[in-house]
Amino acid sequence: MLKAKALCAVNGNLTPEIRPLMSVGEAPVPTADTHGNGLRDLIDGIQNIMIESVGSDEKIPEAVGQLAIKMMKNNDLVKDLLHELRQFYIRGQKDFRLSLAGKSDAEKKQIISLFQDMAGLVSNVRYFPAFQSLNGSLVVMPKAQMFLTGQYLELAVYQTIKGVLQKLSVKYKAEYEIYRNVRVADSEGKLKNEFDIAFQFNEIWYIVECKSGKCFSDWSSFAELGVTYNIVPDHLLLVDAYISDSKAECIEYFCDYYVCNLSGNTLQEKVTKMVMNDFAA
Results as ranks from 00 to 15, higher is better:
M1Y: 07
K3A: 08
A4F: 15
A6S: 14
C8Y: 15
C8D: 13
C8T: 14
N11I: 08
G12S: 15
R19K: 06
P20T: 06
L21I: 05
S23A: 11
V24F: 05
E26S: 07
A27L: 13
V29L: 12
A32W: 04
T34K: 00
N37V: 08
N37C: 02
G38Y: 01
G38V: 10
I43R: 02
I43A: 06
N48I: 03
I49R: 12
M50C: 14
I51D: 01
I51M: 03
E52I: 00
E52W: 02
E52R: 14
S56I: 10
D57I: 15
E58G: 00
E58D: 14
I60E: 07
P61C: 12
A63V: 12
L67A: 04
M71K: 01
M71S: 02
K73D: 14
K79Q: 01
D80F: 14
D80C: 02
D80Y: 13
L81C: 00
L82K: 10
L82H: 07
R86T: 14
I90Q: 08
R91V: 09
Q93A: 04
Q93I: 11
K94F: 03
K94N: 04
D95S: 15
F96L: 09
L98W: 09
L98G: 03
L100A: 10
L100Y: 12
D105A: 15
D105W: 12
A106T: 09
K108R: 15
K108A: 10
Q110R: 08
L114C: 07
L114R: 06
Q116M: 11
D117P: 00
N124V: 01
R126E: 13
Y127R: 12
F128A: 07
Q132Y: 08
L134K: 06
V140W: 05
V140F: 04
M141E: 14
M146C: 02
T149Q: 01
G150L: 05
G150D: 07
G150S: 09
T160C: 09
K162H: 08
K162P: 05
G163F: 01
V164Y: 01
L165E: 04
Q166Y: 10
Q166I: 15
Q166A: 14
K171I: 09
Y172S: 05
K173Q: 10
K173W: 01
E177T: 13
Y179M: 06
Y179Q: 12
R180D: 07
N181W: 06
V182M: 05
K190S: 03
L191W: 05
L191E: 08
E194Q: 14
E194R: 06
F195D: 04
D196I: 12
D196A: 05
F199Y: 12
Q200G: 00
I204C: 06
W205P: 00
V208K: 01
S212H: 03
C215G: 09
F216D: 15
D218K: 06
W219G: 03
W219Q: 03
S220R: 13
E224W: 00
T228N: 08
I231Q: 04
P233S: 11
P233D: 05
D234G: 00
A241K: 12
I243W: 03
S244Y: 13
E249K: 08
C250L: 11
C250V: 14
I251S: 01
I251A: 00
E252Q: 09
F254R: 09
C255K: 12
C255R: 13
Y257R: 02
Y258R: 12
V259C: 14
V259H: 06
V259R: 02
N261T: 13
L262W: 06
L262N: 02
S263W: 00
L267C: 09
T272I: 05
